[in-house]
Amino acid sequence: MSAAKQHDDAASAGRDVKRRPARTNATRLKIFSASLTLIGERGHHAVTVDEIAAAAGISKGSVYYNFGSKSELIGQLLRFGTDILLERLREPSGAATAREELAGMVRGALLFIDDYPAFAQLWISEMWHSPSDWREELIELRGQVLGVVRDAVRRSFLERGVAPESVPAGVVDVTASALFGATLILGQDRQVFTVEHDIDTCVRTVLGSLDAAPAAG
């Protein structure tokens, strides 16, 4: 079957199936799990709705029933993964110091990537891909993640005796972006090239960017 014919069939199925919320969370979880497995193997462009449905053990109509289209499925998958990542990032919020909290965030994010490598692959491939079908969603989701990291970075500056007014404009944002970006790339690199690198070493390395940030004096 040609790609054009598959596209027409998918569009027709999407029109025929009334789009409603998933009947059960279990169905969506099956679809998300199957999607991540297939995306991890071949990338989302090469994966079809038929393959996702088969891997999830449901009908193609059920996929459209829950999501309406493959594009919407990927968008919801990005939100699903980000929600889990945000939970991991917030777990160390009760740490004694902001630096310990940031260390816990980096560790949590690296373990998240260990658990969901295909999600990290999808995020990286689409975040810096222009244009991306999910650009607006990714900007919003990235903002949510960086907001959590940014708060801890700001507190870490205060703990080091840095007065807020002495911090150059944008330094907190840049530091938060550097921490998250380095963690994301390093976590993905561990999956492919450097599996022997232990988590503790990775955490210390990523936090090195904090040491280059402004200090009191």
Score class of each variant (00 low, 15 high):
residue 71 S to K: 14
residue 45 H to G: 03
residue 32 F to H: 13
residue 54 A to M: 06
residue 34 A to T: 11
residue 46 A to V: 07
residue 139 I to D: 09
residue 117 P to L: 01
residue 57 G to R: 08
residue 197 H to Q: 15
residue 90 R to W: 00
residue 64 Y to E: 12
residue 49 V to I: 15
residue 147 G to A: 03
residue 9 D to T: 13
residue 41 E to H: 13
residue 52 I to F: 01
residue 179 L to T: 06
residue 36 L to P: 00
residue 192 V to R: 15
residue 126 E to I: 01
residue 192 V to Q: 13
residue 136 E to P: 11
residue 203 V to H: 00
residue 50 D to F: 04
residue 160 R to T: 12
residue 59 S to G: 10
residue 150 R to E: 05
residue 83 D to I: 06
residue 21 P to R: 14
residue 178 A to P: 08
residue 53 A to D: 04
residue 43 G to L: 04
residue 134 W to K: 07
residue 216 A to R: 10
residue 126 E to M: 05
residue 164 P to C: 06
residue 44 H to M: 06
residue 131 P to V: 13
residue 62 S to R: 09
residue 29 L to E: 15
residue 173 D to T: 08
residue 200 D to Y: 10
residue 80 F to N: 14
residue 67 F to A: 15
residue 140 E to H: 02
residue 100 E to Y: 04
residue 102 L to P: 03
residue 106 V to D: 03
residue 49 V to Q: 00
residue 4 A to E: 14
residue 87 E to P: 01
residue 188 Q to C: 10
residue 14 G to Q: 04
residue 103 A to F: 01
residue 22 A to D: 01
residue 19 R to A: 14
residue 121 Q to G: 12
residue 93 S to E: 15
residue 179 L to D: 04
residue 48 T to R: 13
residue 67 F to Q: 10
residue 199 I to A: 08
residue 196 E to A: 14
residue 149 V to C: 09
residue 199 I to S: 03
residue 124 I to N: 05
residue 191 Q to I: 13
residue 32 F to S: 08
residue 134 W to F: 10
residue 63 V to Y: 05
residue 18 K to F: 12
residue 93 S to W: 12
residue 215 A to I: 07
residue 124 I to P: 01
residue 199 I to D: 05
residue 73 L to E: 03
residue 204 R to V: 07
residue 69 S to K: 13
residue 74 I to T: 11
residue 69 S to C: 12
residue 29 L to V: 14
residue 144 Q to S: 06
residue 35 S to W: 11
residue 109 A to Y: 11
residue 81 G to K: 05
residue 200 D to P: 10
residue 125 S to T: 13
residue 146 L to Y: 02
residue 40 G to I: 01
residue 67 F to N: 07
residue 101 E to P: 05
residue 183 T to R: 07
residue 58 I to M: 04
residue 195 V to S: 15
residue 98 A to E: 00
residue 50 D to A: 12
residue 56 A to D: 01
residue 204 R to I: 02
residue 162 V to M: 02
residue 152 A to M: 05
residue 97 T to C: 06
residue 24 T to I: 09
residue 102 L to N: 02
residue 185 I to T: 10
residue 84 I to W: 11
residue 171 V to S: 05
residue 65 Y to H: 07
residue 198 D to H: 14
residue 24 T to N: 12
residue 86 L to W: 00
residue 58 I to N: 04
residue 75 G to Y: 04
residue 53 A to M: 09
residue 171 V to K: 07
residue 160 R to V: 13
residue 93 S to R: 15
residue 82 T to R: 11
residue 70 K to Y: 02
residue 71 S to E: 10
residue 210 L to A: 07
residue 170 G to N: 03
residue 30 K to L: 09
residue 130 S to C: 12
